[in-house]
Amino acid sequence: MVLSLSASLQDYLESILDLRESGGKVRVTDLAQKLGLTKASVSQALTQLADKGLIKQEPYGPIELTKAGEFQAKKVRANHDLLFSFLVDVLGVEVQTANADACAIEHAVSDETMDKLAIFLDSYKKGEQKMEPDQTLTLADLKVGQSGLIYKLIAPSDLKQKLLDMGLIKGATVLLQGKAPLGDPLEVVVQGTKLSIRNNEAIYVLIK
């Protein structure tokens, strides 16, 4: 648990981490925009975080997490994900409610509870493995004549758009009808249409 930090400061750390991961340098403006707050209040909170040695910021420079800050931020996020997964997967709470509740609980929960929760979820999911999709199976792994349900698309955005428009969406049935003479590309049937797709595009289509 992050005893020494208020809930809102934890949110700041988490947001800085998010922004950094979604692309490069984090500035006060970005942070204010993301959290929906004024720049003034963001600056104030940043001073507090800097005092605690969780972030570094040169005047007018980008905001950087220190090692300690990054640790705290990741921890908050891990807590959130665990709680969210527990609420949705185990209790069957609605996604929106689960998200809001996880946000509220993540700041106030002890390390011990979180550790126990992680162990519980792990064994719970193993027991339920048949329900969980095998994420390593892709469209490219199907055998000719075999079909499967599309579980997720992990393609880069341009290709993903194209695949979606062609009807390769979550929940759709896709049949591998054949392979070209050299094993590539593949001939698949989805939404009643025959498509040709290369192996290195098919690996982005995860199959149940």
Partner: peptide, 27 residues
């Protein structure tokens, strides 16, 4: 600003990007 905020909220909520969600809803 508003769209970016909403987009982030929705994508986090459903753990999927908007394009996929939209395509799925349409189909």
């Amino acid at each position: 600003t508003l769209t970016a905020k909403l987009r982030e909220k929705i994508e986090k909520l459903y753990d999927d990007d908007i394009s996929s969600l939209v395509a799925e809803a349409r189909y």
